[in-house]
Amino acid sequence: MRIVIAKPGLDGHDRGAKVVARALRDGGHEVIYTGLRRTPEQIVRTVLDEDADLLGLSSLSGAHAFLFPRVCQLLIEADCQEVTVFGGGIIPMDERSELFDVGMRAIFGPGTKMEEMTDFVSEVENRIHSGDPVGVGEGGDWVWQNGA
């Protein structure tokens, strides 16, 4: 799978994003890392040009409630409904359902095992093959149930 890992907004904490990028590479995926401090527009442009299957957003600055939905909205406007969006970083439990409502399919917090990330990507791949909704604009209520 082709996966873009992006850091939206003014947030310099990229250790997590880089570790996830490496873990997904070791899981056999092609991972494109955008680098720090991207705008939602720049992230969507990268997903578009790279024809990514998944987009992982990382935020530890507290701005996820604005930035993540903005990225999801722009993806749908750019005709990328089938791209699967997941998030990670410091995302409080009681703020997650709003992110699922805008089309995100998984949120991974601190302590997540790397195998769980690769299991999630495999599950997304399975759903794509069987035609089940999994993209940001494909609807349905499927979200990843965290193991941690």
């Binding site: 990028a21 590479r25 070791d26 899981g27 056999g28 092609e30 991972v31 890392y33 955008t34 680098g35």
Partner: peptide, 10 residues
Amino acid sequence: SGGALLGDRI
């Protein structure tokens, strides 16, 4: 693994 980390865009 067959995977790759593609970072030239940065």
